[in-house]
């Protein structure tokens, strides 16, 4: 079953499968390390459906859940 990043709970680790976003956002994301094959860890989510904090490599990022929903992931150990 395809899983998206916004469905992960804090502390979950996953591997990015696909970025279902436009070319421009994809470039920005890959500049920040969000690329297929990259391991992401969810650090925390903000209340009231606010943004989530994730860790990719040595970079911490915040992004809204709407964007996170467009990042397909596969759960990893």
């Amino acid at each position: 079953m395809p899983l998206s990043l916004n469905q992960l709970a804090p502390a979950a680790i996953a591997v990015i499968h696909a970025l279902n976003v436009g070319q421009d956002l994809r470039r920005r994301m890959s500049g920040l390390g969000l690329r297929p094959g990259a391991r992401v860890q969810v650090i925390r989510t903000s209340p009231l459906n606010g943004p989530m904090q994730i860790r990719v490599g040595h970079t911490d990022l915040i992004l809204r859940r709407a964007e996170a929903a467009r990042i397909e992931v596969a759960a990893a150990g």
């Binding site: 956002l25 994301m29 911490d60 990022l61 915040i62 809204r64 964007e67």
Partner: peptide, 9 residues
């Protein structure tokens, strides 16, 4: 523009 920000140390 989506919010996509780095959280520096």
């Amino acid at each position: 523009e989506p919010l996509l920000l780095e959280l520096p140390p």
